[in-house]
Structures are given as structure tokens and as C-alpha cells.
């Protein structure tokens, strides 16, 4: 890892996109997330790192209220998207999730054709007028996800027939087809081989131009490679949050240093 390069990397955007203040999550009796304060910047890749069970995926699922679908989960605290409280009763979680897209750990293409997988979001949100426009959205999304060249001749083939890496890129294309403002990625590369991982990482870097990307990852190299900001979670608490270069070269908290050097985790 080229540490010098990391230190020199700048965060160009400084506008806050998502602000989380005092977020607590309980799963039944379990206190999964304790008092987390984070500001996620616009047009920035933010990485969440930490050992398994530290609450990073839980926090990610708070950001688009996916925890609402888990019966035992209870979320407290204030999370705002562009200054608007996402738990405000006037906010429909369904609309929120259209703005805050999500890519999951395991590729989960729908049992539909490749085209229909990508067109799913635009269709239900009515983003396209007519077939031509829908096809254009599908093509743009697949191009952005670096999948177009591989699938352009078989858009009617089932999405489940693709390889693991292609499936994950299809899921990313599906998520960006609804043109979200924030893209949440929960360990998007954990089921992929190194080549597919490299493709997805390159893609994440390109997506930064349009979206704010939040990525949960177990790989510290990946966090260092793709992100500008890094948050380290441990035992349900946010331990340290800062510039990626600073977190990896000059961590302030001894627990962060211990995790990065491989002594806890």
C-alpha cells in the first residue's frame, strides 16, 4: 500500500449529505449500535470498517430505514438527508429508499431478464416515459456498471444466469438506475473474485462523481483504495471517523491502530 499517496488524497467536497446524531439501535434485547454521530459528505466515498458484529452494517441499514423491515429492530436518534429528518412521519420510507439506494453483500438479481432487473426501479417509480427512454436508462446504468459490453447481446437472458461478479455489477446497475443520491454498499465484494472486485472498485470510484457512496467492507486495503473518508466501528460504537489517509497512517485512537495493524478483529 502506498501510504504517501493516501496522505496526499484530498476530499474535494465538503457539503454534508447525511447527518446522523446520537443513533442507537436495539435488536430485541441486544444493543447493536451505541450513540453514533457521523456526517457523510456529498460526492465522497465513505468506508465503514470494523470487526464482524461491530454495527457497521446495522448503521448502514439505518440510513435508508431498511431496519424498518426487521420486526425486532428499534432505531433511536436523528438522521437527516439534506437537512430533512428521515424519520419524519411525512417521509415515506419507500421514497427514501429510492433516493438512498442499496447494494447487498450477496448478489441478489431478481428472477427476471437482465433488462427487467435494471428497469425494475425506473418502472415502479415511473422514471421513464415510454419504452425508448426506459431502454436508454437501462443502457446508461449498465454502462456505468461496466456491464454493458458483456450483456448487450443477451438483455433478455435471466439475470440469475450471469457469473457472480456480473450479478453484483447487475445489482449495482439496478441500484443506480433509479438515480439515487446516496448509494449504500454492504460488503459488495465479499462474494467476488479479485478481478471482479477490481472492476467493482473502479466503478465505485467513478460513481463518486454523481453520488455519495457509503461502503461497508471487511478489507482494509479496499477501504484504503476506494474511500476518502473512513469510519471505524468497534463493539457497536463509532471509534474514529476521519480522512482515510489519516485513519490508516496516523490513527488517533489506540483501538483503531490495533485493528489496522491486525491486533484486534
Amino acid at each position: 500500500m502506498n501510504d504517501m499517496r493516501l496522505v496526499e488524497r484530498d476530499v474535494e467536497q465538503v457539503t454534508g449529505k447525511i447527518e446522523a446524531r446520537g443513533v442507537q439501535v436495539h435488536y430485541g434485547e441486544k444493543h447493536a449500535l451505541k450513540d453514533v454521530d457521523v456526517t457523510i459528505l456529498d460526492r465522497t466515498v465513505t468506508a465503514f470498517i470494523g470487526p464482524s458484529g461491530c454495527g457497521k452494517s446495522t448503521f448502514l441499514r439505518c440510513l435508508n430505514r431498511m431496519n424498518d423491515t426487521v420486526a425486532s429492530a428499534r432505531v433511536e436518534g436523528r438522521i437527516t438527508l439534506d437537512g430533512q429528518d428521515i424519520h419524519d412521519p411525512r417521509i415515506d420510507p419507500v421514497q427514501l429508499r429510492a433516493k438512498v439506494g442499496m447494494v447487498f453483500q450477496k448478489p441478489n438479481p431478481f428472477p427476471k431478464s437482465i433488462h427487467d432487473n435494471v428497469a425494475y426501479g425506473p418502472r415502479i417509480h415511473g422514471l421513464a416515459r415510454g419504452k425508448a427512454e426506459l431502454d436508454a436508462i437501462v443502457e446508461t446504468s449498465l454502462r456505468k456498471a461496466a456491464l454493458w459490453d458483456e450483456v448487450k447481446d443477451r438483455l433478455d437472458a435471466p439475470g440469475t444466469g450471469l457469473s457472480g461478479g456480473q450479478q453484483q455489477r447487475l445489482c449495482i446497475a439496478r441500484a443506480i438506475a433509479t438515480s439515487p443520491e446516496v448509494l449504500l454498499m454492504d460488503e459488495p465484494c465479499s462474494a467476488l473474485d479479485p478481478i471482479a472486485t477490481a472492476q467493482v472498485e473502479e466503478l465505485i470510484d467513478e460513481l463518486r462523481a454523481q453520488f455519495s457512496v457509503v461502503i461497508v467492507t471487511h478489507s482494509m486495503q479496499q477501504a484504503a483504495r476506494v474511500s476518502q473518508k473512513t469510519a471505524f466501528f468497534h463493539l457497536g460504537s463509532l471509534v474514529e471517523y476521519g480522512e482515510t489517509g489519516q485513519i490508516f497512517t496516523n490513527p488517533r485512537d489506540p483501538r483503531t491502530e490495533a485493528y489496522i495493524t491486525g491486533r484486534i478483529g
Binding site: N64, M66, T69, V94, Q95, L96, R97, A98, K99, G101, M102, F104, K106, N108, P109, F110, P111, K112, Y120, G121, I124, H125, C171, R174, A175, T178
Partner: peptide, 26 residues
């Protein structure tokens, strides 16, 4: 699989849309 439902809900589909367009076809 629950992952299909999550995928659909995560795209901003409602529960009804998820059932009708993802769960039942699967």
C-alpha cells in the same frame, strides 16, 4: 430468499410491489 425482498425494498419498491413483481414470479 429474503435477499430478493431486501433487494426490491432497497430500490424503493413498496411491500405490495415486491410481492407482486419479485416474490410471486420467483
Amino acid at each position: 430468499p429474503q435477499s430478493l425482498r431486501d433487494g426490491s425494498l432497497g430500490l424503493g419498491a413498496t411491500k405490495a410491489e415486491t410481492v407482486a413483481q419479485v416474490v410471486l414470479p420467483a
